[in-house]
Every structure is written in structure tokens, then in C-alpha cells.
Design a protein around this nucleic acid. Structure first.
Lengths: 215, 215, 215, 215
DNA sequence: CATGAATGAGTATTCATTCAT
DNA sequence: CATGAATGAATACTCATTCAT
């Protein structure tokens, strides 16, 4: 039972939510900023607190340790992306697969467009941090979403081919994740989103077209 | 009585080079072994030396620090993969693109088949360690190799389309790297190489077929 | 208001400044004590902290490293001596040179009389530590003070002989520093201050008398 | 029983003196050079050997450790100075004290004139290294020499005043040592020997004149 | 709830020294 | 006699974490 997360449920606190949110957010932002500047390993908790303008002790009011903070940052951002993707799928359910895929691509690019730097830091952090388990977990969540994409288009050849669907979903996720992450890590905050869009369309449509018989 | 000097009565001392190589190699192997067992962060230099059967000081004869050793391991393995890929391309120059791509896929899978665990550790380590610069550098090296693949098949539509070729190469590299790395990280030493091969063929051939007009 | 724990007699906690001063001072005292006991080179930071009754980390709150602490100790002691000398000069300004010199001698001896051991350690440490620059700097400061001595007595022959004054000052400082330091280093805490006083008077008065024409 | 010093007496070696002397000398010179460049503490035995152009192991053929080497350097140089001083005294025995003192001053300055840099290093090293014991020992040797100076001039007032003689000798040694050392340390290889000579004469003659009744 | 002085466990790293050749 | 790879004892130093205020 961590002191950090207890705030959500603890009755002892009268959190004056706005204050708490502010401090926590400041810490997260400080962390991301430092992440871009000097890399995860070199960041010190003292530093995070200093940049955030909080006392050292306050850090521990909100987070267990550096990794905990990192995980929270990672989780929030991933979740946002996931939800966005899901919304795009829902909004195009029943449409041809090609259209849904395009919608997903557009949705993801839109999310990234707003904060290319932060996303660069995010992908870098993700690479740095993830244990095999965490890696798989996050991946599977997105793969699940892709299964949703494939099922949303009623083009599935036969039923009972779940296994194939999942495989296709994994390949799709790998392609989109790889291209998006690579673009954001490799370009230092100035990703060419147009080229990225073109590449994504090319790769996904190409792959899915060739798999038409299966999925 | 140090293990180092124990070498009983037999081959007292090997010529310099081979001794040095031996110690350095032992350290590298110890590192990879520990990497698989407990993850980068938890590894201690004392431990590496102990597992390698060397004195603590010897570590510093060969490496600056843990990260230096990691980088050397990473570099050597990547280089091997690169050379292997290049050989496969050279051996199939002039053949249809599809064939060359298959050769590359087979070559890479072959390399991975021998030490799936070590490759899992490698991809994990790569994620953990690489700075944006190192990441880009390694990536670009492989992209260059893919440009070679595309040029080896004399199917390039028009000349002067270097830019397109490079983009296609990047997408190909992203696909193969993403799928291979993901498979080795996510399966804890038991990657389904047959499925991986199928996925790679599907994704690459599908993508390249749809881009036929361009490249 | 936590009066509960205040328990009357216990001066639980002093205001910040004084606490900090206490810890830093304790470290300095521990250092000097160890210095006398075993010499600079043999002192360990752990030891200093232990003797001071502080945690190891606290050492680094106040000092960069052993040398830093040593320099602080050296500086404080020298400064005290300097100020004392200056006060003696000021108190006898306008008196005959001989009198002022005697006052300076008496002042310095007085300062040393209180802690002969610590002064022994001080001179030893000074010898051990000082780089040529630090050495010169400290020296010049005292030479400056001697210039003050010579000027305080209005016996300067002609004006514009600043250069000579400085030279005389240097010689005086060398004599007093050499004799005092030597006596404290060489006698292991039991300096014969009477003899020292006699020697100082003899050397300084003798020298100054012979230079009367100049200064 | 050090291996280093054994060479003088050990029958086991056929020293081919020239070789040994060469290596030992090279090490000493390398040491002095490094001493001037970076200070005693920062010097590494590896470095000394490297600069001397010898193998690391060879260092231990000639010296116990860094301090031993330092002591040898210190000792040789001091001894040379001492012998020179003694020779000057002997050459002027029976002459007036003033004359002998001048001869001693001249002799010392002559010795220093040849290698001001090395002497600077010497005095620095002496300051750095000497334990109270070593310090006193060296000092006493020179004081003894000064006793010789005072006795060489047949001006001693009454006999049985050994104690006074010794005190005067100490003061003289302190004056000359202080001025000479200070000049060589503080001027980075470019000591003003003329000024030094003037100061020495002024201080010593002044002091001795005022003590005429005693000595 | 905020703060930051105090703490010390945990490691990296250096460098003198040895000894087989 | 010369060499330098190997060694590990000895320490410095960092930095997360606590807790009294």
C-alpha cells in the first residue's frame, strides 16, 4: 500500500484536489523535460523536485520513486492513444477495412501532432524502461485494439480464425508502432508527419491487401 | 588461490592476443548471461567479473564501465547481423526482389535461431541503452543495407528516385526490426520462428508489392 | 504545538543555522583531532564522520571532500591569526616600530599559546597541502599585514620606497612564520614559547635595526 | 630490507652499474618533472614509469614505492646542499663570521642558480612530504652545520654557551631556509637571486650583529 | 500537506603491487 | 634484469529515502 497512490482512496486526506493535481503534474512535466534533456539514467529525484519547484519530500507524497513516476507518465500517454484509437474505430465500424485503418492512422497522427517532443520522450522512455513483462502487456493491449479494427470491418473470411486475426493484428501493431516510434525518436521533435502518414498507409494497406484471403 | 591462475599444469599461458581476447570475451559472455538472468540495472561489475572468473581490476583493463561493455556487446552482435544480411544480398544480386527479400529473411532468422536467448537480451538491452543518436546511427546502417537490397534487384522503376528508395528501405527495416525484436523480447527465449517467418514474408512482400510502381 | 515532546530541559533542536554550524564544526574538530593523531594521508572520510558523530552523508553536505575540509580549516585558522595581528598593529599605530613589532609578536604567541597542538597540526597541514598558488596567496596576505606594520610606525625614511618596504615586510614574515611554524611542528605540542619569543625578538629587531636606513 | 637499496651491497647482482644508474635516474627525473607539472598527490607510479620510458615493474627494482623515490630525491639534493655548505665553511675557517656567512650564502645561491625549477620542486616536495620526524631530522642536520659556521669564526664570547650557539644556529637556519625556499616556491622557476642575496645578507647580518654579545 | 537536513547502504573505481615470462 | 597483465584491497562518493518540524 503505497503512500503515493493512497490519495485516491484515503479518507484522512482532504486533498484540495487542485493543489495535489498541480504538484503531481508539475513533477511529471519536470520529469519529461529532464528526460528530453539528459536521459532517464542521469535524472535525479532531487532534480525533478527542483525543476518542478517542489520540495524534495513532496515527490514522495505523489510517487514511490523515479520508476513509478515514469510508469505513470508512460501509462497516461499510452492510455490516451489507446482510447483515441478505439474512438476512431468505433466511429467507423462497419466501413471497409481500408477506411477504418486510415481513420486509425489519422487519429494517431493527430494525437502525436500536438506534442511531438513529448512523444519522442515517451517512446524513448518506453524503450528504456520496459521490462519484458511490461513491454508485452502494453503491446497486447494495442494488439487487442487492432483485433477490434479487423473485426469492425465485416470482412473476416471465415469464423474461428481468431488465431489468424490476432497474428495480423500483431503485425499491424508492429508496423504502426515501429514507424511512429522511430520517426519520433529519430527526428528530435520535428517529425515529418506527412511522410509518416504515407509510409503507414503504404505498409498497412500493402500488408492487409496481401492478407486479404486470410483476414 | 585465484581461479584465474589455477590453470593447473596445462597450457600455462597463451600468446598475448589470445589471452586478452579470452578475458574480454569471458566478461562479455558473463555480462550477457547476467543480462538474461536479472536485467541490466541489477548487474554489478563485481558480479560480471566474478561470473567471468576474472579479477575485478581486469574488468577495467578492458572496459570503461558497465555501459561501455554493454555497448561493445551490442555493437558486435549488430555488426554480425549486418554482415550476414549483406552476404545474403550479395549472394542473390540480380535475382528478383522477392527472392532477395526471402534470402534476407532466412539469413536473419538463421542468425537468431542459434541463440534466441542472447538475442532477446540484445534487443532488450538495445531498447534500454540507446540514446537517440546511437539509435539513429544503428538504424541508418541497416536502412543502408536495405537500400542495397532494393538496388540489388534491378527492378527500380526510374532512376533518380533515390529518395523513394530510401523511404521504402526505412519501412522495410522498421518492419523486420519490429517483428524480429518483438518476437524475441516477448517470448522469453522460445520464439516461434516459423510464425515469425510467415509474418515477415507477409508484411514485406505485401508492402513491397503495393509499392511496386515506385521502387 | 508539540510542546508535548519539548520535555523542559532538552534543547531538542536548535534553529537551522546553529544546527548546520554545529555539524560543520564537529566535522572540522574531528578532522583536526585525527590530523594530530595520525596525519592527513591516513584519515578516512568515514572516520571523520564517525569521530564527529555524524552520518557519512552529512560530510558531503558541508564539504566537497577531504581536501576541501582541510582547506576550510586552514583558512579559518590563518584568518584568525591575520585578524589578531591586524588588531595588534591598530592598537599600537604611531608607536615606535620596535614596540609594534613586539606587540605583533606577543599577539601571535598569545594566539598560539591556547592550542599549541592544533597549531602544530595546522602548520603541518599547510606544508602538506598547499599548492604554489595557495602558498603564495596566503603568504602575500601576511606580507601585506607586515607592510601595515612598517607603515604604522612613522619611521619610513623617504617616501616612494614602497618596493623596499615590501621586501622588508617579506623578510619579516619569513622570519616569524619560519620560527613559529618550525617551533610548533618540531616540538610535538610542547613549544617553548619563551625561547620562541626571544628568538623572534632577536631576529626581527636585529634585522630591522640593520635596515633602519632603508625603512 | 628493501630490494631497492640492496644494490649497493648485494652480491647477487652484477649491476652493470651504468644501466641501473640510468634507469634509476630516469625515474627520478621523470618524478621531478611530474612533480612540477601536477603535484605529488596526483602522480601515479605507472605515470612515472611511462615518462621515464621504463616498464612498470622496473620501478620496483629501484624503489619501494612513490614515497621512497621522493625521499631519495629529497635526500640527494639536501645532501648536496649540505656538503656544499660545509665546504664553504671549511674554506673560510678562522675568517670573521661575517665573511663565512657570506660565503655560505654565496655557496647556497650558487647551488640553486643551476636548477631553479628543480629546487622549486624540491622545496615543494619537502613541504608536502615531511613527517614531523623527517622534518626535524633534516632541520637539525642543517642547524648542526650552522653551529659549525658559528664555531668556525673564533668569535664565541665564552665557552660553555653551547646552548646559545645552538639557538642562534637554529634562527640562522630558519632565516636562510625560509627565504630561499619561499623564493623558489613562489616564483615558478624564475627566482630573483640578487634580491634573495640582499635579503639573506640583511637578515643574517642584522640578526647576528644584534646577537654579537652572545655568540 | 510541505519541507529539506540527515542518513548510510551500495557501488564504482583507482592504483599499488606481484610474478610468470 | 625488464616487463606489463592480472589482481583486489581500500575508499570515495552518490542518491534514494526518512521523518521531525
Amino acid at each position: 500500500m503505497t503512500a503515493a497512490r493512497a490519495s485516491a482512496a484515503a479518507p484522512r486526506r482532504k486533498p484540495r484536489q487542485s493543489r495535489a493535481r498541480h504538484t503531481s503534474q508539475a513533477l511529471q512535466e519536470a520529469f519529461v523535460r529532464l528526460l528530453v534533456e539528459k536521459g532517464y539514467a542521469a535524472i535525479t529525484i532531487r532534480e525533478i523536485a527542483a525543476v518542478a519547484g517542489t520540495g524534495l519530500g513532496s515527490f514522495y507524497e505523489y510517487f514511490e520513486n523515479k520508476e513509478d513516476l515514469a510508469r505513470v507518465c508512460l501509462h497516461l500517454r499510452s492510455k490516451a492513444l489507446l482510447l483515441d484509437m478505439r474512438a476512431a474505430v468505433a466511429a467507423h465500424a462497419g466501413r471497409p477495412l481500408r477506411e477504418i485503418v486510415d481513420a486509425v492512422i489519422d487519429a494517431q497522427l493527430e494525437v502525436h501532432r500536438a506534442q511531438p517532443l513529448a512523444w519522442g520522450a515517451h517512446y524513448l522512455l518506453e524503450r528504456h524502461l520496459s521490462s519484458p513483462e511490461a513491454y508485452r502487456k502494453m503491446y497486447d493491449r494495442f494488439v487487442g485494439e487492432w483485433v477490434g479494427v479487423l473485426e469492425a470491418a465485416n470482412e473476416l473470411a471465415a469464423d474461428g480464425q481468431k488465431k489468424d486475426v490476432k497474428e495480423v493484428a500483431r503485425v499491424c501493431q508492429t508496423i504502426i508502432y515501429g514507424l511512429v516510434a522511430h520517426t519520433h525518436i529519430g527526428t528530435g521533435g520535428r517529425p515529418d508527419l506527412q511522410a509518416l502518414s504515407r509510409q503507414l498507409r503504404g505498409a498497412l494497406h500493402g500488408y492487409l491487401a496481401s492478407t486479404a484471403g486470410v483476414a
